[in-house]
Design a protein around this nucleic acid. Structure first.
Length: 256
DNA sequence: ATGGTAGTCTAACTA
């Protein structure tokens, strides 16, 4: 079973890419981020024709998350419970025997900015929520665009992406460690300990061609699912297509 | 070179 995460940077702009990629890889479950679509404009009918049901929480221009699945989703949660947020960044659902949480974590712009403080508050609220989710669901997948590179080996240049930089700062990494300490494992690192594997490259300065990237898109799995995780992948293929997203899909493979 | 590109929407914000 293949469970994937992809920040599409506008589903309107990337619908052809998504449809092509679904045909190419046949994932069972996909979490999308930055759909940038109001719910009334979500292309759920077109996706049904490809064999995927969808649940989604979006808004115009910014943010927006969705979960696509071959099987119907149940017990859908929109947003972080008890955390008032105008921005559509979280959605969760149960599919088969697996609880899926799909996140578009706040970017944060710059360490010390107002947006950075919002990022830390958001991460704190999200972690509290997921502690409860873990109590209720032993089979939990938490995926998305985390906007945090977990370690130096997840950046192309630790001098640029340092303790004071957005995406790699001490406070952000500590917040991610607190989440993982609940018992959530970075599926990519179960199978690959090397540097140089990224999921995002800046559109500017030919970032992809020069592999100047960050690994900020993660699929975390609970202890019970760690035992079933047989592989994890970063799929660079869609980044080679015309008009790509700046992020590329990542996934975990679970034994049935 | 303190830049660069892309999406949404046509000015400026976000990433």
């Amino acid at each position: 079973m293949k469970i994937a995460s992809w920040n599409v940077n506008s589903l309107n702009a990337r619908q052809p890419h998504l449809e092509e990629w679904l045909r190419l890889r046949s994932p069972d479950i996909v979490g999308l981020q930055e759909t940038k679509l109001e719910d009334s404009r979500f292309p759920d009918t077109a996706l049904v024709e490809q064999g995927y049901r969808s649940v989604f929480s979006g808004q115009k221009t910014y943010n927006g998350v969705a979960i696509l699945s071959r099987e119907a989703a149940r017990d859908v949660q929109y947003g972080i419970p008890g955390f008032a947020d105008e921005q559509k960044r979280a959605i969760a659902a149960t599919i088969g025997d697996i609880r899926i949480v799909n996140l578009y974590v706040v970017n944060g712009q710059a360490v010390g900015s107002e947006k950075f403080e919002y990022k830390l508050r958001w991460l704190d609220a999200m972690t509290g929520w997921l502690a409860d989710e873990l109590k209720a669901h032993q089979n939990l997948v938490v995926m998305g665009d985390f906007n945090i590179a977990p370690e130096d080996r997840d950046t192309h240049d630790p001098a640029t992406w340092n303790a004071d930089s957005i995406h790699s700062s001490t406070a952000e990494r500590a917040a991610l460690r607190r989440l993982q300490a609940l018992g959530l494992h970075d599926s990519f690192r179960l199978h690959n300990d090397k540097a140089g594997h990224y999921s995002w490259w800046d559109y500017r300065a030919a970032g992809f061609r020069r592999n100047l990237g960050l690994r900020i898109d993660l699929v975390l799995v609970s202890e019970a699912l760690k035992a079933r995780a047989s592989g994890a992948h970063i799929d660079r293929e869609p980044r080679l297509w015309e008009r790509p997203s700046d992020h590329t899909p990542v996934w975990v493979e679970l034994d049935d």
